[in-house]
Structure formats: C-alpha cells, structure tokens
Amino acid sequence: MSLCVLEEETFRHCCRLILQQSEQLRDGWSWESVQGSQEGYLRKTALRSAVINSSPVGDQVESSSESGPQTSCQSWPDLQQHKKEQSVLVASAGADSIQGDIDDEDDDADEGVCTVSEGSSQVLQYEYHILYSCSYSTPVLYFRAFTLEGRSLSLQEVWSSVHSNFSFRLQNSPLNTITQQEHPLLGQPFFMLHPCRTEEFMRPVLQVAQDHNRPVNYVLTWLSVVGPMVGLDVPLMYTTSHY
C-alpha cells in the first residue's frame, strides 16, 4: 500500500483524534454523520475578518472567454507557463456574471453594501467541512462564507478574501484552484480546494515522518497546509501533542 494513500478508515481515525484534541482546545470542530451510514465530515464554523472585493482583479477579466477554464490538475511545467491564465480564470467565474449583459442585479446591489469600506475588512461567517474523497483517497476541504446579513459570498469575493500572503502561493501552487462545487453529501453549493494534487505535496511530509519513524496525523498535517489559505488556522497545540 502506497505511503500516501489515505484509506477511508484511517481518515475517520485521524478525524477522531482531531476531535479529541478539539474538545480540549474548545475550538469548535464537530463530526456530522450522514443518516444511516458511517460516512460524515468534520465541521467547524468561524467568524473571520477579511477584505473582500467583488470587482475583478486588475485586467484579469478580458481573456476569460478565450482561454480555457480553471482546469484543476495542470502539470507543474504547464502550471508555470499558464499561471497568468490560471489566475485569470479562477477569477473569471464571478467576473462574467458582473460584467455580462445579464447582470445579477442582486449581486450588484449587495456589492455596494459590502464594498462601502473597500480596502478595510469586514466580518464574515465561514463554514468549513472536511470530507473524504474516495476517488483521490485524500481529504478535501469544502467551505462557504456569508456576510453577517446572510448573503453568500461569490467565487470572486472568496478569491479576493484570500490573504495576499497566500494568494501568490495559491496561484502558483498545486492548490491553485478554488471552484464552486456541489457538496457530495449535502447537495448544496460549496467552494472547494481541488484535491487532485494533494498527494504530491503530502508525499515529502509523510516520507520524512516515516523515515524518522514518527507518527503523523495525515488529516491534521494536510489541514495545516491548506487551511490557512482560506482563513482556517490550525493551532500549534495540535501538532505538539502526541498521536
């Protein structure tokens, strides 16, 4: 069995360990199970202050119709060549709806509200779910975000809320794609960090752990890499304890 393959049973075990820790740290993770099955997901909600901006970033809108979509699994060299295109396209989903002929008037109206203090931050409600993908044998992070008035953030706004420390990294890393997807257990729209390159960045971490015969919680380690990009920090307390 490959080092990097996360079995569903191991996933659930990792989640149980995180829950035990979370209970002590009181940081709000819970397990939501799907009725009548073993399946479920880790869930946490958090308030987070972020700068959001629903207008397209710079000149990124123009080429969106011509170039490809935000295909999720570019190879590395490909990624380098196309990183500009990538950033364009990740942003394009929201951009078109605002720029197109069929404007979403609701969005526009709300946009006025939420960008009153453009450049300053506002408080948003985030909901994070950690699910298991049996196709990729990896954990997947799903999330959605609302303003305090209850309006869902668009893909454009979510993208703009990624902290600038991370946005460069997002655009240039295997995690470059945030897309809107159907939550596979709830059937509702969520944003998702695409899992198809997870194995690639997890392998070195797991290799080192194995070489030193050190136990590692796959889900926790993975979360500490992907979480901060969308405002989800993993307290150090988790990693200093023993598994």
Binding site: P69, Q70, L89, P189
Partner: peptide, 24 residues
C-alpha cells in the same frame, strides 16, 4: 436559488466541471 444551484456565468465553468469529472 444560490443555496441549491451552482452559478454558471460562462461556458468555461461548464468546461472546468466537465474536465474535473473526467479527471476524477
């Protein structure tokens, strides 16, 4: 109904969805 449906502002979103399914 943005609690039920994914937004589909352009064909590139459909393409991304389609390719993502093929890859999965």
């Amino acid at each position: 109904p943005d609690r039920d449906l994914l937004h589909c502002p352009s064909n590139s979103v459909i393409e991304a969805h389609f390719m993502s399914s093929i890859k999965e």
